[in-house]
Design a binder for these strands. Structure first.
Lengths: 157, 157
DNA sequence: TATTGTTATACTCTATAACTATA
DNA sequence: TATAGTTATAGAGTATAACAATA
C-alpha cells in the first residue's frame, strides 16, 4: 500500500532487507553446525581481540552481562572457549579460545570471505569502492553522532 | 588478531556491522513502545499488503507457521490487528490492521523515513545512487541465484 | 562506592512434530 | 492428498533486579 518515495528511504529499505536475508542465511547455516549467530559473534570477537573479559564482550556486542554469561556458558559447553583467571583482577575472567574454538572461528572467517567473494564477484572495483565508503560514512554517522531512530523521530516535528 | 584483507570482505564486514548497529537501535527504540522487531516486521508487511493470510506472512518473513501464530497473537493482544475470516477459504484467516494498528504502522514508517534522511543527509546523490544500485545487485544475486554461505563454503575447495 | 560476573525470574523468538478443519 | 493454522513441547536470546566477591 505504501511504497518508498525517496531514494534515501529506498536505500535504507534495501539495506535492511539485505541484512535480513544475510542474517537468515547465516542463522540456518550455523544451526547446522550447532552454533548460533550470537555465539558466533562472541567467537569472532574473541578471535579478533584475543583473551578478553566478559564485560568487554558484552559492551562490544551490546548485550547485558547476564546475557554474556549465558553465551559464554554455551561456548564452554561446546569446548570452544575456556574461562581463565584474569592476571590482575580476581573478579574478572578471560574468555579464551580453545584449539577447537580457534579452528572453528577461523573456518567461519574463511566462510565469510568466500561468501563476500561470491556476493561482490561481478562488481566493478569502483562501484565496490563507493559502496564501501558509503557504508563507512554511515557507520561513522551512527557511531560518532549518536544518530538513532529516536533522535530522528524528534526531528520529524 | 585477524583483519579483513580484501575490499570485498571489508565491505561485507562493514555491512554486517551496520546491520547490527541499526538492528540494536531499532530493538531498543521499539521496546520502549512495547513492540519488537519481529512484530513490527509483521505490522509493516500487513500495511504494505493489506489484509493477508498468516501463511503469506510466514513465507515473506522466513518464519514458520507456528511462529507466525505467536507473532499475530501478540499483535492481537496489543489491539494492533484482528483475525478476519477469509472470504473463500475457511481454513485461512486474514490478518487485518485495526485503526490503532494502522496509526502505529504509519508512525513507524515515518520514523524510518526520518532516520533514512538523517543517515544519508550529507551524501552526494550520485554516491547514494551507486550505493543503492549495489544493494539492489547484491539482493538480486542472493534471491535469484540461491547464493548462500553454505554454497560459498563448497567453492572454497 | 563501583565493578565483574552470577543466580533468580520472565518474556520473546524460533523450531519440529502432531493434530484439526478445510481444500 | 495437500494446505492453513493451532496445540504441545523445547531451546536460545534477551532483559531487569538482587547478590557476592573484589576493586
Amino acid at each position: 500500500m505504501i511504497e518508498p518515495s525517496n531514494p534515501r528511504i529506498a536505500a535504507l529499505d534495501r539495506m535492511l532487507e539485505l541484512a535480513l536475508l544475510i542474517n537468515h542465511d547465516l542463522t540456518t547455516s550455523l544451526a547446522a553446525q550447532g552454533l548460533s549467530t550470537s555465539r558466533v559473534s562472541v567467537l569472532w570477537e574473541v578471535l579478533r581481540r584475543g583473551p578478553v573479559t566478559q564485560r568487554e564482550l558484552a559492551d562490544a556486542l551490546h548485550v547485558t552481562a547476564r546475557n554474556m554469561t549465558g553465551l559464554v556458558d554455551g561456548l564452554v559447553a561446546g569446548q570452544l572457549v575456556t574461562r581463565e583467571p584474569h592476571p590482575s583482577d580476581r573478579r574478572a575472567t578471560l574468555v579464551t579460545l580453545t584449539p577447537k574454538g580457534t579452528t572453528a572461528a577461523q573456518q567461519l572467517v574463511r566462510d565469510q570471505s568466500a561468501f563476500a567473494d561470491l556476493l561482490f564477484a561481478d562488481l566493478p572495483p569502483a562501484e565496490l569502492g563507493t559502496f564501501a565508503s558509503v557504508l563507512d560514512h554511515v557507520v561513522n554517522r551512527l557511531n560518532e553522532h549518536g544518530l538513532t531512530i529516536a533522535a530522528a523521530r524528534k526531528e520529524e516535528g
